[in-house]
Design a protein around this nucleic acid. Sequence first.
DNA 1: CTGATAGACGAACATTAGTTCTACGATAAA
DNA 2: TTTATCGTAGAACTAATGTTCGTCTATCAG
Lengths: 225, 225
Amino acid sequence: MFVYQKKVVDKAVKTLSHKQQQMVDFIQRFGMDRGYPPTIRDIVSGCGISSTSVVDYNLKILERKRYIRRHREVARGIELTARLPSSRDQLQIPVIGQIAAGKPIPVPTPDVWNITASSETIEIPSKLTQGRQGIYALKVKGWSMIDALVNDGDIVLMEYINAVDNGEVAAIWLKAEREATLKKFYAENGHIRLQPANHRMKPIYAEPSNVEIQGRVIAVIRQLI
Amino acid sequence: MFVYQKKVVDKAVKTLSHKQQQMVDFIQRFGMDRGYPPTIRDIVSGCGISSTSVVDYNLKILERKRYIRRHREVARGIELTARLPSSRDQLQIPVIGQIAAGKPIPVPTPDVWNITASSETIEIPSKLTQGRQGIYALKVKGWSMIDALVNDGDIVLMEYINAVDNGEVAAIWLKAEREATLKKFYAENGHIRLQPANHRMKPIYAEPSNVEIQGRVIAVIRQLI
DNA sequence: CTGATAGACGAACATTAGTTCTACGATAAA
DNA sequence: TTTATCGTAGAACTAATGTTCGTCTATCAG
């Protein structure tokens, strides 16, 4: 008796024609994307079927095999019996301070690094950093970085290095002006050109002795909720 | 100015009448229990309301306040914007196209959603979206969004909605000009003010009939390698 | 008092979408 | 061959469901 029962269940649960599997997948995806189940006609076009009655026919089978539950006479009354999860990896990056004109850029000393859980952290996909070390983040205060297309409140992802290649965007401390700024860095015969990201704005020129590279900009994140 | 803005958003997001709160709860429960969203008439009887138009009226408000998203002309096309679970993992968001002046913004239709699974996607922390659904991303082409502090190559994270509150940044299609643009949106006595994020730039004014809201900007991501 | 506005009603209307019926070809059993 | 069943089609029918409109009430500012 148990054997018989098992057999029946097996057959009922496992055997799905290609079309039926396709329909289950479609219903699944549709629900995930849109927040409500598909109509029979959605399934028709979504699975390249040519008639509503075919879908109805197969839905009846899926229902019998307990992949779905149907609520008759109800628009979109298709309910998946199973629902699912997911996961991935990401990094916790410390936001170690603010960047603002007139204030030196805080440098991530080891002690700061060590579970500065005290302050803030942001999560980012590990893909963004591409495996680099010495990554930290700064929150931008004020509008002085506007010519780098960075707004008040933006988060700047930084890599802690002291030299950059031409054309890279860096956080630069101008000693004499006592100003922090984000610019594209170009070393050109004896002096340094700092080029705003905004092409309408003019570059500024500085003496090498007046600039201090504080880090390289990896990414800018602006969240508007 | 910022205070005013905050106030507006606050009010828009928080204040719910008793009836509206009741409706949200009902929609929530209904979806949990049955696996599909309620119809307007379900809400009528479920919340002891006496007319479908009352429900419609309040659904419009809930939509404006972003508690739900509605899919017009679609049976049970009510989608809660906040779905419960979702841990601290990250999401695969499809980059469904480019945004550029002179080109309409591609809208994520169901088929695009699925097909683009094959094309490009970006990973973002689920925290960034705060559990919202209907999130997609666009790659910015050209410098026409520069006054929104968005550069060529930036990724704009969008939420697919058709109505925004004053002060929010939206992707707007100007019909007559055939131009897409990212601006802060303000509806003011009969006309619409579109305010660049860059405070050095002047707002532009438009007729309501000329603007089409394509989505809301959730975040901007600029990756510099 | 007047006008503006938020909420609520109920009916009518237009689509959407589930259901049903007939028919056809292929395959397998009798 | 005949009969039965599975899978597929297409169309028609009807119930379910979203939308719109005119109307009504209550409240509040001027």
